[in-house]
């Protein structure tokens, strides 16, 4: 069943809508949630919450790309849930990813003060347009899908060190880009 048909089911308030979404995108949602939460039970709950949120969003929303729309919901829910975790349940891999991105903002004026989330999101989007496809794919796998470097290396059949250096270069470029965009230190 294609996405337009699934979305139509939501508009018709058909109970099949969630079932069809789960069949088509269940693994995708679970993968994202589990990468962030590192807990099967939590990831499953998060996945189910995402279906409910999708059910409430459509209508009136009509997403252009259902998969990434749903992916954003599940990623957001997983991150919010992660914030409530106790120290024992911290996902080391995710904490590493946060600290890697921390490098991009050292010295920026917004580090200590206020910043506009919307501006930052727009800047990140514009930045992704400026870089080559391959480093961009690696960057998105790491910081959107929360894949580990090992997983990225295996997925694209390249060495882990290559992934590491690509991410390092992209983060440096992002840092310079954010400075130019007005987040200057």
């Amino acid at each position: 069943m294609d996405d337009a048909q699934i979305i139509q089911l939501y508009f018709e308030r058909s109970e099949d809508a969630i079932e069809k979404t789960k069949i088509k995108y269940g693994d995708f949602c679970f993968h994202i949630a589990n990468n962030i939460l590192k807990s099967k039970e939590d990831a499953e709950e998060c996945e189910n919450d995402a279906y409910l949120k999708l059910w409430n969003a459509i209508p009136p929303q009509r997403p252009n790309v259902l998969k990434s729309y749903l992916g954003k919901i599940v990623r957001n829910l997983a991150l919010r849930r992660y914030e409530y975790y106790s120290a024992q349940k911290r996902n080391v891999e995710l904490e590493i990813a946060f600290s890697e991105l921390e490098e991009c903002i050292v010295g920026l004026k917004s580090v200590e003060g206020q910043f506009d989330v919307g501006d930052l999101e727009k800047s990140v989007n514009r930045f992704l347009h400026t870089i080559d496809r391959e480093p961009r794919i690696i960057f998105v796998r790491r910081y959107w899908y929360a894949d580990s470097m090992k997983e990225i290396a295996a997925r694209f059949r390249i060495s882990e060190s290559k992934v590491k250096s690509s991410l390092f270069r992209t983060r440096n470029k992002l840092r310079i880009y954010l400075q130019k965009e007005g987040f200057m230190g």
Binding site: L79, E100, F115, V117
Partner: peptide, 11 residues
């Protein structure tokens, strides 16, 4: 870093 990670959600 987490704010930046969150901002990635809107790509």
């Amino acid at each position: 870093g987490k704010d930046l990670y969150d901002a990635m959600n809107s790509i």
